[in-house]
Amino acid sequence: LTVHVGNVTYHFDNPEQAEEWAKRMAKKYQGQIHVKDGQFRIE
């Protein structure tokens, strides 16, 4: 699973971990989480 934050990409084996990280990053950067094809993108 991949989480994109700006132009930085993080890889996770565990979906719960990826989702948790995406939520934390979205809160930190006050962005929206977009989920597409098993990838999380924070914008």
Rank of each mutant, 00 (worst) to 15 (best):
L1H: 15
L1T: 15
L1C: 15
L1Y: 15
L1K: 09
T2W: 09
V3T: 01
V3K: 00
V3A: 02
H4I: 14
H4F: 09
V5L: 10
V5Y: 08
V5H: 06
V5F: 12
V5D: 02
G6R: 04
N7S: 11
N7A: 10
N7Y: 10
N7R: 11
N7F: 11
V8Y: 12
V8M: 11
V8R: 14
V8A: 12
T9I: 14
T9W: 06
T9K: 07
Y10C: 11
Y10N: 00
H11T: 10
H11F: 13
H11K: 11
D13S: 13
P15A: 11
P15F: 15
E16N: 11
Q17A: 14
A18Y: 04
A18H: 01
A18C: 09
A18F: 06
E19V: 13
E19F: 15
E19T: 07
E19H: 13
E19S: 07
E19P: 01
E20W: 12
E20D: 11
E20M: 08
E20S: 09
W21S: 00
W21P: 00
A22R: 02
K23G: 05
K23R: 11
K23L: 10
R24V: 13
R24G: 06
R24M: 13
M25Q: 04
M25E: 05
M25S: 02
M25Y: 08
M25L: 11
A26T: 03
A26C: 15
A26F: 05
A26I: 04
A26E: 05
Y29D: 02
Q30R: 10
Q30F: 07
Q30N: 15
Q30E: 07
G31V: 12
G31H: 05
G31Q: 06
Q32V: 15
Q32H: 13
Q32S: 08
Q32R: 08
I33F: 06
I33S: 03
I33W: 07
I33Y: 06
H34G: 03
H34F: 14
H34E: 08
H34Q: 11
H34I: 15
H34L: 14
V35A: 03
K36G: 07
K36D: 08
D37K: 02
D37A: 01
D37I: 02
G38R: 01
Q39Y: 06
Q39H: 13
Q39C: 15
Q39S: 09
Q39A: 11
F40N: 04
F40H: 04
F40P: 03
R41G: 07
R41D: 07
I42R: 01
I42N: 04
I42D: 05
E43D: 08
E43G: 04
